[in-house]
Amino acid sequence: MTSAEDAVAPEPAARGRQRLRRPGRSRAAYAFVLPLLAIFAAFYAWPALNTVLSSGFEWGLINPWRLTEPGSWEFVGLGNYSETLGSESFWNAVVNTTIWLVFFPLLVTGVSLIVSILIWFAGRGLAPLLFRTAFILPMTISLAAVGVIWGFIYNPDPDFGLLNAVVGALDLDFEIDWGPLHLQTGQWLSDLGSLDLGFTELRLTNLSLIAPAVWAFIGFGVITFTAGLTSVDQDLIDAARVDGARLRHVIRYVLIPQLRGSLVIVAVVSVIFALRTFDIVYVLTDGGPGSDTEVLALLLFKQAFVFLDEPDAGLATTVAVLLSLVLVAGAYPYLRRLLEGTPR
């Protein structure tokens, strides 16, 4: 084909788009999209817009703000935002959520990557299948149930709590003070220790809540990485071996670069999960002791549904808006990757 012919003949995809642009077909396309758009508008766009609007008013669940009743409006402008950003409980929840944000994606990504590579090297057969199933199975349990199960494991009485029974039997009980770090075993859900950073003190009990969440979430990482590993080019590995690469070199320079897409997906989904975590915290500690493990989603819940004597639902929607902004920012690499793969 000559270059002139190239310029004239449209690409197949472009021809398809041209067909869609014909008025009749375009209307049909809109008709097909309309139900989905209506569902999106009713159940996603409107609630999101309503949440943003609600954050500008002072209201509570018992005395709600209603769009259609101007008499119920107590407009406070950005007052809820300034109150939230100046509140001690908000920043305490931010610190706890940040602990989740750092440790949860790291642990989920790291552990599930290691497990997936081990399974991949083990090849086919019953043992790898059982191994993979063991890691994937907890994913099928609801997070509230995971919380209840781990509540039993963490029970301080060694007659009932598995962890303290093991710690006692193996004589692993300890309490250490290394500079700003205080760490102790035994009181897993009330006082695991603390790390004093000078400007704030991190409560390590949050790690006791992150552990069951990681246990339940690793299955997602294992599935994603296992799928990614099936597309790894065996020739590349063979070539690396021939060139004298050791196992760790193969993993570092061949496998991991080919798993970049899976890594982004697991990391971003874990970040989103960490930001909106609620169930496990609610079931295991309800944010306690004190507010040591109170995360943003739990603070939001309490402001909207527990503190009924005060019109704090506006503050709850403010936390929701701030959380959503961070979520969108956190999900951006994932969204970009999705959009890159979408035909236009």
Partner: peptide, 8 residues
Amino acid sequence: FPPDALSA
């Protein structure tokens, strides 16, 4: 109070 007053 026992050391596990807040754990159980």
